[in-house]
Design a protein around this nucleic acid. Sequence first.
DNA 1: CACAAAATCGAATCTGCATTAGAATTTTCC
DNA 2: GGAAAATTCTAATGCAGATTCGATTTTGTG
Lengths: 195, 195
Amino acid sequence: MASKAEKTRKRILDAAASVLSQRGYAGMRLGEVAEVAGVQAPAIYYHFASRDELVEEVMWSGAHAVRLHVEDAVAALPDDTGPLDRIMTAVDAHLRYELEISDYATASIRNARHVPEALRDRPAAEESLYSRCWRDLFDDAKKEGTIRDDLDATTFRMLLLGSLNWVVEWWRPEVRPLDEVIAVAQDMVRRTVTS
Amino acid sequence: MASKAEKTRKRILDAAASVLSQRGYAGMRLGEVAEVAGVQAPAIYYHFASRDELVEEVMWSGAHAVRLHVEDAVAALPDDTGPLDRIMTAVDAHLRYELEISDYATASIRNARHVPEALRDRPAAEESLYSRCWRDLFDDAKKEGTIRDDLDATTFRMLLLGSLNWVVEWWRPEVRPLDEVIAVAQDMVRRTVTS
DNA sequence: CACAAAATCGAATCTGCATTAGAATTTTCC
DNA sequence: GGAAAATTCTAATGCAGATTCGATTTTGTG
């Protein structure tokens, strides 16, 4: 039974994630966050020490939650799933989480390089865990020979993550179902990676 | 013989492009722009009606210049160059321009969705010309049968542009030469597009 | 070289927003 | 049901940064 106060805190965080993902770090106004959360601006200070602390928490949650979502999706696969199919699942999970589930993810993705240095440490640590997660997926695939030897897997991974992160900038559900985007992205990976 | 004033205007624009690409729309301070341009803040108002007009001009120039650079690079190819090689050249030109040549490009790329609606029209028109340029490249390739029929070329194009646009977020020259990134990106296109 | 016009500057204004202070209200727990 | 604690509100405060206003310097030109 989450206390009333905890629910308010959650509403403020959700609102901040939404505003942050739309307006960016410098554009996020506490007034707008408060309005979305259905609260007055000063109430935010009961739950967070400062605007920056609120931002940091959103960014961290964003990176953290994507990672958990993707790791869970991969972990839920049958044990005998091949390394390439694990990567396909990760692509699917990343895109769905970013586009259908959570503003936190887009907030953290879009603002990672725009927030002041002081706020980057904790979110950046999460992000590097997430990077490692993808690196492991690719390393496994390479070990099992699913990835051709002459591919620069690191660079390709960066390009792939970039293309996925950028989808939020152009995708509109009414134009094209998400499943089609996912299918094309997976196709791109499969063809680039196998010999 | 560009008059002194025109040179100042150019310095202010360059400074704005640099600050805008680093700090984002809301984070760009006229004070910082002025400092980078070696001028006092009010001087900006002699050359631009407002902060927003300055931003709009940077964004428009960014989109415009990338397009010209890519179109020129493609146009400079021998007439008998195949459609796939034209796309390869476009990938090369886009990345080099974005990463080595101009802050305008990254300023416009990173902020397109963050600036207020009122500023989007002119830059957006340029961007859609740029989109058309890529679409034409892919259409030609499809017409000549270089692209397999079952590829959703539009979606792939968006994913590709996304991966290229995102490179600015992670690439560091000291870690990996740009040529390697370009080569991997081209490889990704070639393998995804051909049957 | 002088002088009008153009370009730039320093100081002042005005606004929007984060943050604080203290009062009022709600929740929790006995 | 009521008091203490927790939570939220309304009303300031203070500052940073865009914009304006004259005053001052620089540039182009006869």
